[in-house]
Design a protein around this nucleic acid. Structure first.
Lengths: 252, 252
DNA sequence: CCTGTTCTTACATGTTTCTGCATGTATCGT
DNA sequence: ACGATACATGCAGAAACATGTAAGAACAGG
């Protein structure tokens, strides 16, 4: 049992079950509670979890989503990504956000698709390096390590120099009152800047994001063309959004 | 048991089981743990795995994908990269080029090093995302897929807004007459722009580059602080360069 | 075929890091 | 307030690590 494995195990438990009890994990893995506590303390120091008496809870929404980077793309995100690919027109220009859903979109682009992809995510670039026809443009800036994208003033400024037909944005929260939200202020500003440079902006949000709210507002609904999700159409949040006129496309 | 076989075996284990425990592999293959550790260190320097206490874990897909595409990765690059790391001062700002040698530098940065890394390579960014203390700044622009770096007018312009203490550049040719050369004109211009923004510029060139020449000139010798290579000091090209006053540092 | 060189590998050393236990302290539930 | 549990700290043994060194294999040149 490598120390790094323990760490992953703990993060996995946090993501799956929403909590970690030091005593239980120690018994389960056959290690001392001290080691579990030490690991949790380290993870908390990195902002990956929140230490509480008896164990730990997932990190605050501001940094949540970091841990999921390692794991495989869940089915929901893949469905949403597949539906988003249908929006892309050959020969066009696409602004692609960072995050796992956008990364899934990159992976699903058909090999014969001829288009330009603009992104602030090095990960998306890496995923599309092998693509034979896509032209890549990278927006630079200070790299926000938690979500692995460029943001900040320089990145926002770089975004002013591009324009596109379509912008696909991921968010961490879609809420009737709070609107479209994400966990970091700079990231929110960057998404806003991206959306402003495209003729159409679609939001990609797998089911677990619907009804959730994060600290920072990304966009008002008026700036959004539509929403793609795999959540059931009768989800109360979706019904309210549809009633207010937002186009909602169901991924399946 | 050939060294290359061991390497493949380790990569296979990483892919199949998601981890490698140095002790176990040593017992399984009947070799010393030192050899396993050496191999893992080399693989980590090439970005093919991530070293952890007790063994290794798979590298992030973005880095592994790029590193795998490079056909030959001679051991010399690791030595050159290790020598380059010695030039980096804590708290300083470093401009890091793209390419496998620069990637090896990124992989060899000590975890306790506190510095800012500016790069136009998404791969380098991906390699340093896990680094706990390094601050990352990404220079954006059109992505040149062959070498996976941002270049072109936008990237050169972005480079004008940064400055650093040290710039580490890779080249594909080091030749007494042709000078420092590389295979793409835009890439050469980008390297030139990077070098112009740093107080010191060092060239990283493993042995096979010495005496070679590529189509496009990167920099005149006057703009270069020194050269790091693992080629023998009595290499005719190096002797000529040293005679003309260039500082040459031998990696071993 | 021989010789000197280089590279690789294994071992030996000292250092660092990890882990579990012991102690004393803080916090929780009753 | 009390006992029980969780916690932080210090410590010691163990494991992993880096480094240097020496023996052997592979190689190039004569």
């Amino acid at each position: 049992m490598l120390a790094a494995e323990r760490r992953d195990h703990l993060l996995g438990l946090l993501a799956r079950e929403g909590k970690v009890v030091a005593k239980d994990v120690a018994a389960e893995l056959g290690i001392s509670e001290d080691s579990v506590r030490r690991d949790l303390r380290d993870l908390a120091a990195e902002g990956l979890c929140q230490r509480v008496y008896g164990g730990a809870l997932p990190a605050s929404p501001a940094v949540a989503g970091y841990a999921e980077r390692q794991s495989v793309t869940p089915g929901g995100k893949r469905k949403v990504a597949a539906a988003a690919v249908d929006l892309i027109r050959p020969g066009g220009t696409l602004i692609l956000d960072g995050g796992t859903t956008a990364l899934a979109v990159a992976g699903l682009l058909p090999p014969d698709l001829d288009c330009t992809v603009i992104t602030h995510s090095p990960t998306v670039v890496a995923a599309l390096l092998e693509h034979p026809r896509v032209e890549l443009f990278l927006l630079g800036g200070r790299v926000f390590k938690h979500s692995a994208v460029a943001c900040g003033a320089a990145a926002v400024e770089a975004a002013q120099n591009v324009s596109a037909d379509l912008c696909l944005l991921g968010v961490t929260g879609v809420h009737p009152e709070a609107g479209l939200t994400t966990g970091d202020a700079d990231e929110a500003a960057m998404k806003r800047a991206l959306a402003a440079r495209a003729a159409e902006t679609w939001i990609l949000a797998s089911a677990e994001k619907i009804g959730a709210a994060s600290p920072f507002r990304v966009l008002p609904w008026e700036r959004v063309t539509g929403l793609i999700t795999d959540a059931a159409p009768d989800h109360p949040t979706l019904e309210r959004l549809a009633a207010s006129g937002l186009e909602i496309r169901r991924a399946r």
